[in-house]
Design a protein around this nucleic acid. Structure first.
Lengths: 137, 137
DNA sequence: ATAATATACTACAATAATGTAGTATTTAAA
DNA sequence: TTTAAATACTACATTATTGTAGTATATTAT
């Protein structure tokens, strides 16, 4: 029930950009706004660019902008691009061999919770958030 | 959507003991069965004893047994005793200041997922698992 | 040309989480 | 009284995650 900083940051960056999806955002500007260290953010931007969510414009006045429509950017795909959803889909008791066919005692209970997460992240895109409401972050 | 090893182990130990809740389990036996290092397990047992889930019988032929009825052992309380549920209840974007009153853009979506986890762990006790089924772990 | 901004590396530092080692003491069955 | 098994510490080792530093090169508006 917690994502890694890497996943948090990736979502934080893209959801921030999604508020004004037509703009071009410099790494410098994002660093100032999002409280993420410069090098860490740039490393993530490289991943997100390679994964095709954003494109980079090099040279003076360059920066990053969306390479896809917001409704084509699925949250689970963002996680996958920076570290992989599987990381979050393991057995609650930590048994590697646990599966539907070979379940631990808490398997069905946990699958229930886990699928709520998975479905939400598979079904939500960046277009599904209402940026007009008074959201501070 | 992932618990720490500490939480995993605590649940692993207690759910193992719950299969035969009347028995006394030595630390040595649990270590052999559960693939958790000796010192780490003992440290956890001390926590779980202090929290009142189990009691320790010292001396020769000692070990651990339940100090409560299984239906009084709530999963969330186990997590709380070893590290705290709050750890799993934070903002998905990692904003400390994010709250119902002061939400991030993904707040309502995340609360939805988070509460599924929270409710499940607040409502399930060790008595709610069917140990008669063919669960390998 | 210069300046701002990007890419692409490599390497190291700091912190948090997990795991291991050791030593001394207490308890209670046999 | 001996012994197995507990408590209660302290300290260190390993690994993973997160964060920082530096250097070299490419791109494009001005």
């Amino acid at each position: 029930m917690r994502l890694s900083k890497t996943s948090e940051y990736a979502l934080r960056i893209l959801s921030f950009m999604a508020k004004e999806p037509e703009l071009l955002y410099s790494a410098k500007f994002l660093v100032e706004k999002l409280n993420i260290s410069d090098k860490y953010l740039r490393r993530l931007m490289t991943n997100l660019t390679k994964s095709g969510f954003i494109r980079s414009a090099q040279g003076r006045d360059g920066g990053y902008s969306f390479a896809k429509k917001l409704n084509d950017i699925v949250l689970a795909d963002i996680i996958n691009s920076v570290e992989g959803m599987e990381k979050y889909m393991g057995c609650v008791l930590g048994f590697d061999q646990c599966s539907d066919a070979n379940p631990c005692v808490m398997h069905s209970t946990w699958v229930n919770v886990r699928e709520k997460f998975n479905e939400t992240f598979q079904n939500k895109t960046l277009a599904d958030f209402n940026f007009d409401e008074i959201n501070k972050f």
